[in-house]
Design a protein around this nucleic acid. Structure first.
Length: 564
RNA sequence: UGGGGCGUGGUGCAAAGGUAGCACACCGGCCUUUGGAGCCGAGAAUGGGGGUUCGACUCCUCCCGCCCCAGCCA
């Protein structure tokens, strides 16, 4: 029980559930929910919660509801609802026949509130927000009771009804639970249950002008849906006594709340506020900017959902506030794509190569393996001709000791093609820039094998100039320069840690011709470079634009770095 | 300052009185028609002090540090 197939030890949540099942606490049932507020886009931190809740339901043969927490009409829109649904679906989860909304329960919630009033456990307060704060008091001193706290049940009932009827302006009255103004837990100092908000709601329209607070709605919605395990983040631990109190006062089904630490990821930000700041401030192109940790951004960039799910499995779940290294996410992506992505040849920064001893008009087709990790992926033909493009980085006029790619007089292998030797360098007389390489090839090495057993230190990628597809490729890098973008001196804007080089657009890349047919969203490994995906928005038929998802591990780059 | 929560290698997660383990990262080696992948290996941790015990990450106690709470946000 508790992901036996994962071969992982159960985390603290699964241990609790295992105990509950053993104790028949909920008749052996497991019913979770993912309760987003439709006021923003989902990010990879939400993915952790989604994978947890839906994953639990799958493992234990239970169910997981998708319920939108839409209790604040001033912030929520159906546009966000649709975006969230798309993200959850993309991750690979289904929530059954219908999606649920807290607003579905407004009438029931109102009735619950009336019950509390009748029981003398809630009252209509008429203090303004500043006064409420004043009466609530500080942590280390008890608060004071509102002068309206002793209103009669009849008066409370009438006032509450009139609040609903729209007879009061915003903020004039609230409904508060009557608990304990001297509690050490601030959440029990008569928390607000209802407030007046004259604003249209994305689903209920003009029907209501009073709305339940999250604290009043959330627990009761879970109860109404028969949720057994209400999994939420650490900051709600302080609220649990309030939720317990409400459920107890109402005498209704009492789910078990379990709190876990939300995800933090290095080199990025996951707070809704900061994400909005980046989007609205124009620091990125939108919610789906491939540099953003939003699910929309990751999807657009080309991240496979399987990799995100694997990541969520690997990070585990606990109550410790912690930051996961971006490298782990990248590792999950590489692991998934190494298995599944077809390999292709692409030259990002082309350097022209002329093979002097290769016949002018000859074109050959050479066999290339599609994925060495997957024999079933088959192979394809690559056109080869006299003029080629290779990567500029693969040639150095004066190679340092550990560099074993192409250099004057040196021989390397062109992947799946021939051995190639550099016999000359053509430069711009003015600038000294290298314009092209003059080379010779060995016809005996077709396919890349030397019959004489001669060895070569490097194999490099290439694209036939004549048949190449020219394309734009976007190189994305981490959005911030430091692991914790918010770690800035007092008074310094955290956005000053943005990485100015997080996007590099290359527009004269040369790709093997088969890529003209690449479908939007499809993922490839550009051999020796990294994993890339066809941008779903900016690509046109026959004219793909590629986004770099993640680079390949690059031990040469590491060496170079270390040498400096 | 009151309440709640949390401290295990660089990072994340295990070990519920019995040899502190796994993954990522890092370092070294092997292999290689991707300087990829794969394989092998090394280094590296229980916040601190007392106590209980044959034995403590685990139990007790004191201390230290970090996070959350004074919205009519969620």
């Amino acid at each position: 029980m508790g992901r036996p197939e994962a071969g992982q030890p159960p985390d603290f949540i699964r241990k609790i559930i295992n105990e509950d099942i053993a104790d028949e606490r909920f008749g052996g049932r497991v019913h979770t929910r993912f309760p987003p507020e439709p006021n923003g886009y989902l990010h990879i931190g939400h993915a952790k919660a989604i994978c947890l809740n839906f994953g639990l339901a799958e493992e234990y043969g239970g169910r997981c509801n998708l319920r939108f927490d839409d209790t604040n009409p001033t912030k929520e829109t159906s546009e966000y609802v649709e975006a969230i649904k798309a993200d959850v679906r993309w991750l690979g989860f289904a929530w059954g026949e219908q999606e649920l909304y807290a607003s579905d329960y407004f009438e029931q919630l109102y009735e619950f509130a009336r019950q509390l009033v009748k029981a003398g456990k809630a009252y209509v307060d008429s203090l303004n927000p500043a006064e409420v704060r004043e009466y609530r008091g500080p942590w280390n001193r008890p608060g004071r009771e509102s002068p309206y706290r002793q209103r009669s049940v009849a008066e409370n009932l009438e006032l509450f009804e009139r609040m609903r009827a729209g007879q009061f302006p915003d903020g004039a009255h609230t409904l508060r639970a009557k608990i304990d103004m001297s509690s050490a837990n601030m959440n029990l100092r008569d928390p607000t249950l209802y407030r007046v908000i004259h604003a249209p709601h994305h689903r209920t329209g003009e029907k209501w002008c009073i709305y339940p607070t999250y604290d009043f709605a959330h627990g009761q919605c879970d109860s109404l849906e028969g949720i057994t395990h209400s999994i939420c983040t650490l900051e709600f631990e302080n609220h649990r006594p309030l939720y317990d109190w409400l459920l107890e006062a109402l005498q209704i089904h009492h789910p078990r709340q379990i709190e876990f630490a939300r995800l933090k990821l290095s080199y990025t930000v996951l707070s809704k506020r900061k994400l909005i700041e980046l989007v609205e401030g124009g620091y990125v192109s939108g919610w789906d900017d491939p540099r953003l940790p939003t699910l929309a951004g990751l999807r657009r960039c080309g991240y496979p959902p399987e990799a995100i799910r694997a990541f969520c499995e690997k990070i585990g779940v606990s109550k410790v506030n912690s930051t996961v290294e971006l490298a782990l996410l990248e590792n999950c992506v590489r692991e998934e794509l190494n298995r599944s992505a077809p390999r292709v040849m692409a030259v990002l920064r082309p350097l022209r190569v002329v093979i002097e001893n290769y016949p002018e008009d000859q074109v050959e087709e050479l066999e290339a393996v599609n994925n060495p990790e997957d024999p079933g992926a088959g192979s394809r033909k690559l056109p080869f001709s006299r003029v080629l493009y290779i990567e500029r980085d693969d040639f150095l006029e004066e190679p340092p000791k550990k560099f074993y790619r192409l250099a004057p007089g040196r021989e390397v292998r062109l992947r799946y093609a021939y051995f190639l030797k550099c016999v000359g360098v053509v430069k711009d007389e003015q600038t000294g820039d290298i314009l092209e390489l003059r080379c010779t090839y060995d016809p005996e090495t077709r396919g890349g094998y030397a019959p004489d057993g001669r060895k070569v230190k490097a194999t490099i990628h290439w694209v036939s100039a004549r048949k190449a597809l020219q394309a734009e490729v976007r190189l994305y890098d981490r959005l911030f320069r430091q692991a914790d973008p918010t770690d800035v001196p007092e008074g310094v804007d955290w956005k000053s840690t943005l990485n100015p080089n997080s996007l590099e657009t290359l527009d004269s890349c040369r790709l093997e011709p088969s890529l003209a047919q690449a479908r939007p969203g499809s993922r490839y490994q550009f051999e020796r470079l990294g994993y890339f995906a066809v941008d779903p928005l900016d690509s046109a038929p026959g004219k793909p634009v590629f986004n770099r998802i993640v680079s390949l591990r690059d031990s040469w780059a590491k060496l170079k770095q270390a040498g400096k």
